[in-house]
Amino acid sequence: MTVSALTRPGERDRLVVKFGEIDWVFGLALFLIAGTGALMLFSIAGSSWEPWAAKHLARFTFCFLLMVTLAMVDIRVWFALAYPVYAVGLLLLVAVEAVGDTRLGAQRWLSIGSFSFQPSEIMKLGIVLALARFYHSISAERAKLSWWLLIPAAMLGVPVLLVAHQPDLGTAMLIAMTGGAIIVLAGLSWRIILGGLAAFAVAVPPFVLFVMHEYQRQRVLTFLDPESDPSGSGYHIMQSMIALGSGGVLGKGYGLGSQSQLNFLPEKQTDFIFATLAEEFGFVGCVSVLALYAAVIFMGLRAAYVSHSHFGRLAAAGTMATFTLYVLINGAMVMGLAPVVGVPMPMLSYGGTVMLTVMIGFGLVMSARVHRYAEITSGKGSLL
């Protein structure tokens, strides 16, 4: 489409129709989650918009507008960009190995002037797009059980190993589980799935003992017995569980959480903001926010379901799998049901990188919904 074509009445009408096809209830749920996050950030900063709440709202506003813009982009454009985005993400991960910045013992960042970013965030989207495009181009029989599985396994395994080597085990797990979800949704045989789960169970103990870094191994041991070192490695989990339990049914009240207000709770604005919510608003507040997350996940999966193209279905479902894993992993981590791996609660936690990645993904989900009748020919992203 040319720039001049945008001025034609027919094209303007089509843009209006697309705008109306966006699921605005989905958008409202996102606003409510982000708004709750801003309220919590305002509270834990001592009833101040600085340094977190104002930036959180500004970032969400920008990301929401970006999501709406990306929702208008034809799903066939996403299809055409799938492999290039994956390739760029892979090259940037390799660049991290060569010239990446090292912070707190981890080499995860690339810097361009004063701007720095984590290429692993690009790969979260890249792996979804690439695997969705791959499975769009092969038959259901090949997706079910054949040597073709080696191709998506390699596409997934290379970035996972690169991210794990940084080391960033939490992100590596997130990418691996997202890719695995897409492979399963594409129609993988249950024999392969059950065999893979059995192999994973067998591989976990030696992986923990001989492959993990010492600090990662300590996180697992702390998860199994946090009270063994309550003032050291178990401090995060213990303080989080105290905050969760002290909130009770209705919470202590807005701005009255002792664990967060008195700075006993570490990373209260990022990884453990859900514990802050539990302390101030209790069980009812937690269930209400989780209900919003469940609604977002349901509406996102519904958008995947109504897409007529296999690529649209898998890309939207894969994006929602990533989002679901964020929520489940962070919730389990805060409750002491999983090791602390540095995965934030999306849109509730403070942080621009994850919010940007998630909202770009939601732009893809909404594009799959808006362009659900678009036909994509295998191997081509033609808009004709």
Score class of each variant (00 low, 15 high):
114 S>A: 10
120 S>W: 00
42 F>D: 00
91 L>N: 14
58 A>Y: 04
125 L>N: 01
109 W>M: 12
102 T>L: 11
53 A>V: 00
61 T>Q: 12
112 I>Y: 09
88 V>L: 15
91 L>Q: 14
122 I>F: 07
124 K>C: 03
87 A>C: 12
64 F>L: 13
59 R>M: 09
103 R>I: 14
111 S>L: 11
39 L>K: 07
32 L>R: 09
46 G>Y: 00
115 F>W: 15
103 R>E: 15
75 I>N: 03
128 V>T: 04
61 T>A: 14
27 G>I: 08
113 G>C: 09
37 G>M: 04
71 A>E: 04
43 S>T: 04
115 F>S: 13
70 L>V: 05
82 A>V: 08
52 W>I: 02
58 A>K: 10
72 M>C: 13
54 A>K: 04
122 I>A: 07
126 G>L: 02
61 T>F: 13
105 G>S: 14
75 I>F: 03
27 G>R: 04
66 L>S: 05
50 E>N: 11
120 S>R: 01
40 M>N: 11
113 G>N: 07
72 M>K: 06
106 A>H: 06
40 M>S: 12
120 S>Q: 03
33 I>A: 00
28 L>D: 02
44 I>P: 00
66 L>R: 04
42 F>H: 01
70 L>M: 10
65 L>F: 15
108 R>C: 11
77 V>W: 15
100 G>M: 05
76 R>G: 06
49 W>T: 00
